[in-house]
Simulated scan of single mutants.
Amino acid sequence: MALKYKRILLKLSGEALMGNLEYGIDPDFVNELCDEIKDIYEIGVQVAIVIGGGNIFRGVQGTKVGMDRATADYMGMLATVMNALALQDVLEKKEVPTRVMTAIEMRQIAEPYIRRRAIRHLEKGRVVIFAAGTGSPFFTTDTTGALRAAEIKADVLIKATKVDGIYDKDPNKYLDAKLLKEVKYLDAINQDLRVMDHTALTLCMENNLPIAVFNIKERGNLRKFVFGEEIGSIVKN
């Protein structure tokens, strides 16, 4: 069976790394996630990852207690670097070569983000983890995911979630919530379906970059998806 998606960008929230914990990094979940990544890496998929930091610190939390928004966002960016290093450590223990690239320069622990170098890493068979967001405050990691996916010419942006896909309303609150298998970009924006923030959705729409949303906790979903099986929901024109 041929691969449908050969270069992907996986958008992981920091909260996803909490697994079943209330805070921090769940080593059991991260281990399972890295097994999934290794599985598709070994069949030839080029994997890039954008990771959030909400399991450690969110800029929005800081502003709620009176912090300057830019300062709070920079703290959130540093949290994403911690998550990226943790993910790199587990992947490399599984013999998956990995590079962390950050939008904020910190040469002792990671490479600075350079687009052409990132693409070269992918071509050479390395998983690339993008950390520190865009390097600027006021932008979410959703927007970072869309930006990096467009820059590296990814075939698809995958938003990893804990639900089965995109619903017309919150499935945790409404029993009659309907799973939407396919959504247009403008519908996702106009109906405020909370797929990603509007900046990210607009960037994907302008670059004709499909967004896949599915449950990353279900084993094998990532592999099924890259081979073209209909998993979760997809946003496209």
Rank of each mutant, 00 (worst) to 15 (best):
P112N: 13
K224T: 01
N221A: 02
L222A: 00
S136Q: 14
D39L: 01
I37A: 01
L122P: 05
L222M: 06
A132F: 01
A48T: 03
V100F: 02
I119S: 02
A118R: 06
Y23D: 12
D170P: 02
L85V: 11
R107F: 04
K173F: 03
I25C: 12
Y113T: 10
V45T: 00
G66E: 06
R219D: 04
I234C: 07
R115V: 06
R117V: 11
R115K: 15
H198V: 09
L85I: 14
V127T: 14
V156N: 01
K6D: 07
K6W: 08
V128R: 13
N208G: 09
E218K: 15
G44R: 12
R99Y: 05
T63A: 09
D142V: 04
K38D: 00
D176Y: 07
A212G: 12
P97E: 11
M77P: 02
A86L: 05
Q88L: 01
A2Q: 06
G145T: 03
K217W: 04
D176F: 06
F225M: 05
G53H: 07
L3M: 13
E36V: 03
E230Q: 10
P171R: 08
N55L: 09
L10N: 04
G66S: 03
K217E: 05
M101T: 08
G24E: 09
I109C: 11
P27A: 02
K93I: 03
D89K: 13
F138A: 04
T202I: 08
M1W: 01
L201V: 12
E230H: 13
N83E: 03
L179W: 07
M67H: 12
N237V: 08
A131R: 06
A16L: 15
G44E: 12
P112E: 14
E42H: 01
T141W: 12
Y41E: 00
R219K: 15
N83A: 01
G24F: 13
V65N: 04
E229P: 06
L157P: 10
V60E: 12
E123W: 03
M77R: 01
P210H: 08
M106K: 11
A86W: 02
Y185A: 09
R69Y: 06
E22G: 14
K6M: 03
I104H: 04
D187I: 10
D73V: 05
L209H: 10
P27R: 02
S233H: 10
D68H: 08
N20H: 07
N208H: 15
G14M: 06
M67I: 05
K236V: 08
F214N: 14
K11H: 08
F130M: 14
A200P: 08
E111A: 04
A131N: 10
G53D: 11
C204K: 14
G54L: 10
N190W: 00
I231S: 01
Y185F: 15
I234G: 09
L209N: 10
K38W: 00
E123C: 00
Y174M: 00
V50K: 05
K173W: 02
L10R: 05
V128F: 10
G24H: 13
S233E: 04
Q88R: 15
L209A: 05
I51F: 08
I56D: 07
D26P: 10
